[in-house]
Design a binder for these strands. Sequence first.
DNA 1: TATTCTGACTTTCTTTGACTATTATACCGG
DNA 2: CCGGTATAATAGTCAAAGAAAGTCAGAATA
Lengths: 158, 158
Amino acid sequence: MAQLSDNIEKFIKDLMEEGTQVELRRNELAQHFGCAPSQINYVLATRFSINHGYVIESRRGGGGYVRIVRMCQRNEDNLLSVLMNQIGGEIDEESAVAIIKHLLDLQLVTRNEALIMRSAMQQDALALPVSAKNVLRASVLKSMLKQVFRNAQRGDKA
Amino acid sequence: MAQLSDNIEKFIKDLMEEGTQVELRRNELAQHFGCAPSQINYVLATRFSINHGYVIESRRGGGGYVRIVRMCQRNEDNLLSVLMNQIGGEIDEESAVAIIKHLLDLQLVTRNEALIMRSAMQQDALALPVSAKNVLRASVLKSMLKQVFRNAQRGDKA
DNA sequence: TATTCTGACTTTCTTTGACTATTATACCGG
DNA sequence: CCGGTATAATAGTCAAAGAAAGTCAGAATA
């Protein structure tokens, strides 16, 4: 249950706390969790990706480090167009969910709205090639985003 | 003749108790009952389907799980399964919008939520035959409905 | 005969280890 | 003292093994 990767993710997020970034030694962390160092890379890749809103900077060699930076929230003004660009013609489910979570963080949508949007992103039942699903998902997400930003402009509170 | 499936069903329902959901390991449960793991899937499919008012979420791989969530009936006895049947494999935009409006009338969704759902139903940009769009729409709508009827209280943590 | 149950096969997610790449530092010849 | 080179100390990559859960056709059973 409490998976190694999940624990490492939590550990890092705890380290971040209120700050916007954290720096660590990959090998030390691996040792702390008694795992292979590359496990750390796995966690970073699957939980701290760009789509999750993080950037990883690192350096090898003596005194090397891994720095995890939480991206600052983008200006809401052009957020819609930024997101539209980011989505493009297709998007995978994970990235879509990350975008929705971002909206939630920015309080542009309520928790329930985010959940509904997220559910619209899971098309697992559809018997289609993944690439086609990504195209469909992009279309649906963009449509919903336009709606959300219409609401946001009005400043509606449901 | 207390059938194995019946026992498993009862076991799961006991686990749920008053709660709205329960999480378990498929293999552990199978072992507990000394049966094939796929037996669990059979029980889930035949006793915990959407029409029974449940949704199943799961994850594979290390640390995998199966989560069984009981839906909210909200006095509208079996509205969800009625709607699911009504939607079937495809649905046109007009009917979808009608269903969403119905949910709004019943105050099962807020106005904003309804707007978002409706926007997810308009796939005009998509260069696809109408029939294909209807299939896609059905899939997205059903997915959102499941979310709406989930028992999670408003403002709940996932 | 319809329902239940199983097993082989598939898919997804995690973890590891061997190999590679980069950087800092120590060491050397000039 | 300077510049280059070897060495050590890091981190990165990738493929393969491991650890779950899913699917489905067919056997077993009520």
